[in-house]
Nucleic acid binder design. Structure first.
Lengths: 158, 158
DNA sequence: TGGATAAAGGTCAGTTAAGGTCAAATACCG
DNA sequence: CGGTATTTGACCTTAACTGACCTTTATCCA
């Protein structure tokens, strides 16, 4: 089932892969027109599919000659891994961010498809509800479990 | 006597047998319309007739363009995992038992080293205690989480 | 030169289109 | 008759998508 968001995502990724620089510029209006959708749809896609956790950065300018620039940030180095995980695990845990991070790990082939699926499954709220409450406890547990799982992956040898 | 559930079950199985992939996607609404029944009837059939024990797995997405995906577990895999699946369909849960399964799976090379480590990590009591009690709840949670992970592995291709 | 205007993009609440849950009602079977 | 399986309906959650309204920037012209 391919959604509009999927198509827009694919299109932008294609642009990125064709670009010799590490970013591409788009015009929100144009893209929206190309896909016959509301301009705000583009923001939606950027937010959901091109977040920092996924390894992208967005910058933009309004007004005449405005644009949206999408950067693909460098692949994760061993060192940077720890930082991302600490960041995700610091403060309130947001499963959605963790999920995005998983997507990125997949794209960079740091984890296998199966591992990605396992990690994703561990973040589902339904696993915890009825057994754990209030919500804050659910988050803490998810955090612990996510961290534990990812650390095992980090420990290495395939 | 042939019940509605029977017909729906047959229909889905037919779809699966016609599919070249190891899953089919359905739309709950559509199916319900096709069989002139309440949408929740579909969930009922899936729950009763397409459980892991019977060799199937379900996954779904809500919202616009939502879907329900039904996997048929590859018979070979099912064979290999039968003991685990049956164990998980039963009542209580002992982490030690699960650990033994993991070990066995490693020896037979049906999971990778990394997957083995992840699964093991998920069973550690320390992850749960302090956040969950009494012990019976810890066990239930461990079971759910372990089961969720196993099911993702069962979903297939590497 | 600076104020009006046009041409971008941003935000956010609300709508639509899915699927999920659970308990109550009903049907079937031994 | 009692218990189990089926079926339904009311209500909930979630993801995608839209539209109205807001802000920023460039540029043009008096």
């Amino acid at each position: 089932m391919v959604t509009l968001s999927d198509s827009i995502e694919d299109y932008i990724k294609k642009l990125l892969s064709l670009s010799s620089r590490l970013y591409v510029d788009i015009r929100r209006r144009e893209l929206a027109q190309k896909f016959s959708c509301a301009p705000s749809q583009i923001n939606y896609v950027l937010e959901r599919r091109f977040s920092a956790e996924r390894g992208y950065l967005i910058e933009s300018r309004r007004g005449g000659r405005g644009y949206i620039r999408i950067y693909r940030i460098n692949p994760l180095q061993k060192q940077a891994w720890k930082a991302v995980i600490d960041y995700l695990a610091g403060g309130d845990f947001e499963p959605d961010k963790a999920l995005q991070f998983i997507k990125r790990c997949r794209e960079e082939n740091i984890i296998t498809r199966r591992e990605g699926r396992i990690l994703q499954a561990l973040l589902k709220d339904e696993l915890y509800t009825a057994l754990v409450s209030p919500e804050i406890k659910v988050r803490s547990l998810q955090k612990r479990i996510f961290k534990a799982a990812i650390e095992e992956i980090l420990k290495g040898s395939y």
